[in-house]
Amino acid sequence: MSKVEERLAELGLTLPEVAAPVAAYVPAVRSGEHVFTSGQLPMVAGKLKDTGKVGAEVTPEQAKALAQICALNALAAVKSVIGDLDKIEQVVKVVGFVASAPDFTGQPGVVNGASELLGEVLGAAGVHARSAVGVAVLPLDAPVEVEIQVRVSA
């Protein structure tokens, strides 16, 4: 078990199986020293944990927890490409999409669920640049979607 997975276990979390794509793409691709994930939905055991818009059917607190699930799924996608999460040298960028009610403006707080998890699990290597974007709708009516870009060792 990698140090990263040991840290997840200390936090009471486990790395899930890679979420199956819902369309024509792969979960992650390596290009040189970087791995780019596809957008990861809050899938648990092959199903969305929740659906709806943040600020309407989904509370900001629920959405923050869903963003954490997205980050776990993103780490699983990275592992599927590099085999060992200890090869992550730096999370370079996180992009979070939040399906938002028209008056909801708390997207950064929601995406903190992903950012905080990456920081807790990876330490200094988890510090990253980030965008948090409000959108009208996401695939399968997911409340949150997160993608990450990481730099890895050979």
Rank of each mutant, 00 (worst) to 15 (best):
I69F: 12
I69Y: 05
I69V: 14
C70E: 11
C70A: 05
C70V: 08
C70P: 03
A71H: 06
A71I: 08
A71C: 09
L72C: 12
A74C: 02
A74L: 01
A74V: 01
A74Y: 00
A74K: 04
L75S: 04
L75W: 02
L75I: 00
L75N: 03
A76K: 00
A76L: 01
A77Y: 01
A77I: 00
A77N: 10
V78W: 00
K79N: 08
S80Y: 05
V81I: 08
V81F: 11
V81E: 15
I82N: 09
I82Q: 13
G83R: 08
G83Y: 09
G83M: 02
G83W: 05
G83D: 07
D84M: 06
L85M: 09
L85T: 06
D86Y: 05
D86G: 05
K87A: 15
K87F: 14
K87D: 15
K87P: 02
K87I: 07
I88N: 07
I88L: 08
I88Q: 08
E89M: 10
E89P: 09
Q90R: 13
Q90M: 14
Q90D: 11
Q90L: 13
Q90C: 00
V92S: 15
V92P: 00
K93N: 10
K93W: 13
K93R: 15
K93F: 11
V94A: 02
V94I: 09
V94D: 04
V94R: 00
V95T: 10
V95E: 13
G96A: 02
F97T: 07
F97V: 04
F97P: 02
V98W: 15
V98H: 10
A99W: 06
A99V: 06
A99C: 02
S100K: 07
S100N: 15
S100A: 13
A101W: 11
A101T: 11
A101K: 01
P102L: 12
P102Y: 11
P102T: 06
D103P: 01
F104I: 12
F104E: 14
T105G: 12
G106L: 11
G106E: 15
G106C: 06
G106Y: 04
Q107R: 04
Q107E: 09
Q107W: 12
G109Q: 06
G109V: 03
V110D: 11
V110H: 03
V110M: 11
V111Y: 07
V111E: 02
V111F: 06
N112I: 14
N112H: 08
G113I: 10
G113H: 07
